[in-house]
């Protein structure tokens, strides 16, 4: 294999990996506050993408994306308010099941609001045919946007969860909800904030990846499955881990394509994921002690 090809596979892996990573980050936020996996995370992406596409026909792109993020985060708050908040005894499993149901409901609603057609946002820089030449290999400028936006989100979340009072309260809720309540933290509000935050970030992710992946009412599910895999690989709750996990899975897939038929791509990625989890059950960057406190 020539150097250019090697590099091209790597860039292709990074393209997919960065998409997985930006999706995975969304899972981590709700997990960090509630200890649950929000299976409607993919639908937040779809909602964000679809809303931005609809709005972009009568406002400039940046404004449309901003509005989509705001609208979707309110949708996130609404979901928490209508469903999660009202659970009498919010067990982890109960909340997970609610999110599974919600993902189906949101998908059906989206099908009725929009339709079954595939749409996409325009490329942020250049268009469908522009590509950047990196030493003989090529990459779409949109991929750089995805990587850039993921990095900004990771830094933002890192600062938010470590240094702000709200962020720390949210983490306290996940570690031990009773103790957090005793300290005077309003746990229910923290859950609402986490839903808003993860819906907003999901929407932003949905907008950034839309030119590459295209958006359709049911595109959330398949993105979410990969994102979930990556979140586990990186260590649940760890945003840097999500990026590392995403790139690792993306690269593994890309290089498996170079030697094996494409059909085995997922099998290879999942096999390696399993091996890593046998060796490090808490994920690449997850902490063992932290994982021990969670219900899963």
């Amino acid at each position: 294999m020539s150097f250019e090809q090697l590099l091209q596979y790597a860039l292709s892996g990074i393209t997919n990996g960065s998409i997985y990573a930006i999706v995975a980050i969304g899972f981590n936020i709700i997990y960090n506050t509630t200890g649950i996996i929000n299976f409607a995370q993919g639908e937040f992406l779809m909602l964000g993408g679809m809303t931005a596409i609809s709005l972009s026909s009568f406002m400039p792109l940046p404004l449309a994306i901003l509005a989509a993020v705001v609208i979707t985060s309110f949708a996130g708050a609404l979901i928490d308010f209508l469903f999660i908040r009202r659970l009498k005894s919010p067990s982890v499993l109960g909340m997970v099941i609610v999110t599974v149901g919600l993902s189906i409901v949101i998908r059906e609603i989206a099908l009725h609001i929009w339709d079954e057609k595939v749409r996409s946002l325009p490329y942020f820089t250049g268009n469908e045919i522009s590509s950047i030449n990196i030493m003989g290999a090529f990459i779409s400028p949109q991929v750089l946007w995805v990587i850039g936006v993921s990095s900004v989100i990771v830094v933002f979340l890192g600062v938010f969860f470590k240094f702000t009072l709200t962020g720390r309260s949210m983490r306290a809720c996940a570690s031990n909800i009773t103790a957090a309540r005793l300290c005077g933290i309003n746990a229910r509000n923290m859950v609402t904030i986490s839903f808003m935050l993860s819906a907003g970030i999901g929407a932003l992710a949905g907008c950034v990846v839309s030119p590459i992946t295209q958006t359709q009412y049911d595109c959330g599910t398949s993105l979410a499955i990969k994102g979930f895999t990556v979140a586990i690989l990186g260590g649940l709750g760890n945003s840097t881990g999500a990026v590392v996990g995403g790139i690792v899975i993306g690269l593994l897939e890309a290089f498996s394509i170079s030697v094996l038929p494409l059909a085995y791509k997922d099998a290879v990625a999942i096999a390696i994921l399993l091996i890593i989890l046998f060796v490090r059950p808490s994920g690449l960057l997850g902490k063992k002690e932290a994982a021990g406190l969670k219900e899963f």
Partner: peptide, 20 residues
């Protein structure tokens, strides 16, 4: 001759193989 997932979102990997 390659088969991709019907939900595929990026196919630069397999197309690199074709290009080669």
């Amino acid at each position: 001759s390659e088969v991709y997932d019907k939900k595929a979102t990026d196919l630069t990997g397999v197309l690199t193989k074709l290009k080669a």
